[in-house]
Write a protein that binds this DNA or RNA. Structure first.
Length: 383
RNA sequence: GGGGGGUUUCCCGAGCGGUCAAAGGGGUCAGACUGUAAAUCUGAUGGCAAUGCCUUCGCAGGUUCGAAUCCUGCACCCCCCA
């Protein structure tokens, strides 16, 4: 499927589940899918220098239109040569529209049909983001993939609230599409619909009519249990066109990624590897390790013996020391490890799909993550 | 030698008759984190057979129904005058 300078190639679908191996071409290079985008809200994957990001196996990063419009201002970025040049990342970039901030900054936000009004969390000034404005900001930034402005609400929520937000998201998506001008930027639609499968399907159909070069599933991992999210994916993904990339926004934990891949999702982003890394939590095949914990004080082992990242050249004891001492190297190393972990998981997933063994790959990973959860429960439980 | 100030739970430090196992901060321990207002936030932190009991505010006595808080003596620390 070609869409201007963008092309989506479906290479293989696993014989035993919906997992897909595909490729998406952008003006800044092709992206092998499924993949994970580290989050660079403010044109920075927190703590990670560009060479380090590249070394993790990252292909594409995510920036944020709302935050960058606020500071330094999208025109500043544009005049400095666009977001790629500004941040020094010359691979593909996807920007989020600010729809998520309608949810995450709800206390500072008012919604009308024409636009969202934000009270800046930085200095309190008022700014309006309409669908057209969200596109304008992202065109100034010059990302390869832009997202429509959607209306994200917390879940679970009253059905009226969810339906209204979903219907508005569809209307806003059309306005975004009509406003988009750049040939070298793909605008993705975002399916809303809360926890209602029929509303999700309706939304997917409406957006499919807009013939967008890619589709996202949004409004998940906003408070609902994981099982609900998987249920919604089961209902939503089949309603999306098979010849376009599918992006699950803001998700998630390693197990969520695999659960979504086997349901046909191709693309992810999440703050979890970087935020949790900064907060001393390391992802491993044995489950998450809380590096601040006393149990690692004398632990001479690396986080993972098979991991090639710089953090894994050190002992857990040293990493713990860095966090306990509040040394900035701790958050940097663990962010690096976690992003590396996510990318290795994606690389392995891609390989498993083309060999039609994604389900056994998934089962083995889940078992590993489970094992530590069980061990921890045992340690915490009464003797 | 004379005068003044001080000694509080792991540390710093508030408390100056009951509502005090004792504010606040630090440290320590544990937890949370899903399109980043997050290198942030939350909880625990004397002991125990624990909706209660026991021990604790330099040490030893005393006053009082009741003392970390008042009195006496002692120990140690700091400041000023000799």
């Amino acid at each position: 499927m070609a869409h201007g300078s963008f092309r989506f190639t479906l290479l293989h679908t696993d014989a035993h589940c919906r997992a897909r191996r595909s490729r998406f071409h952008t003006p800044h290079g092709a992206v092998e899918l499924p993949t994970f985008m580290p989050v660079a809200t403010l044109a920075s994957v927190k703590g990670l220098q560009i060479d380090a990001i590249r070394a993790t196996g990252t292909q594409m990063v995510l920036g944020n239109a709302y935050h960058l419009a606020l500071r330094p201002g999208e025109k500043v970025v544009e005049n400095l040569g666009g977001l790629h040049r500004f941040m020094g990342w010359h691979g593909p970039i996807l920007t989020d529209s600010g729809g998520f901030q309608i949810f995450s900054l709800a206390q500072c936000t008012r919604i009308t049909e024409s636009h969202a009004t934000f009270r800046s969390h930085i200095d309190g000034h008022e700014l309006q983001v309409s669908p057209e404005r969200a596109v304008e900001i992202q065109e100034s930034l010059g990302s390869d993939i832009a997202m429509v402005l959607d209306h994200v609400v917390a879940l679970p929520n009253e059905s009226d609230v969810v339906r209204e937000a979903t219907e508005r998201s569809v209307r806003w998506a059309r306005r975004c599409r009509d406003a988009a001008r750049r040939e070298d930027q793909a605008l993705f639609g975002i399916v809303q619909g809360g926890l209602d499968p029929e509303l999700r399907q309706w939304c997917a159909e409406q957006l499919t009519e807009l013939d967008m070069p890619g589709y996202a599933v949004g409004g998940l991992s906003v408070g609902e249990p994981p099982a609900e999210m998987y249920r919604i994916l089961d209902a939503t993904v089949p309603a999306l066109p098979a010849d376009r990339p599918r992006y699950l926004m803001g998700v998630g934990r390693p197990q969520d990624l695999l659960e979504a891949i086997r349901r046909g999702i191709d693309l992810f982003d999440c703050v979890m590897p970087t935020r949790n890394g900064r907060n001393a939590l390391a992802f491993t095949d044995q489950g998450p390790l809380r590096l601040r914990n006393l149990q690692y004080q004398h632990d001479d082992r690396p986080l993972e013996t098979t991991c090639p990242c710089p953090a894994c050249r050190h002992s857990r004891a040293y990493l713990r020391h860095l966090f306990v001492s509040r040394e900035m190297l701790g958050p940097i190393l663990l962010s690096l490890h976690n992003v590396t972990y996510y990318q290795r998981l994606m690389t392995d997933a891609r390989q498993a799909i083309v060999e039609d063994r994604f389900e056994s790959f998934y089962a083995r990973k889940m078992q590993g993550w489970q094992s530590v959860a069980t061990t921890c429960a045992k340690q915490r439980g009464p003797a």
